[in-house]
Amino acid sequence: MKSVNALTVAAAVAGALSLAAVTSATPAMAAKTKCYGIAKAGQNDCGNAAGTHSCAGQSKVSYSGDDWKGVASAAACTEMGGQTKPFKGMNPKKKSS
């Protein structure tokens, strides 16, 4: 068998799309809310509000208000002492370690 025929492929794609419609919750997209002020130095997710670095793990300051981590929801962010908008300086609710 060199290749699966076009009809089979088309049917499989249609099947996959209808399956996806049923299970539209995408587990990989869970950490959607950008939460600022909770990331330790080097443990931030991609980018920061100040534009001083562009990617993950580059933050040199713990709990900086410019740096975010992906968390599940705004409620989870608040619970962790963070804010969903960037802010100036260090997070007053966190002590640097």
Partner: peptide, 8 residues
């Protein structure tokens, strides 16, 4: 192997 399950 099932193409539809795999794609979904």
């Amino acid at each position: 192997f099932d193409l539809a399950t795999c794609l979904a």
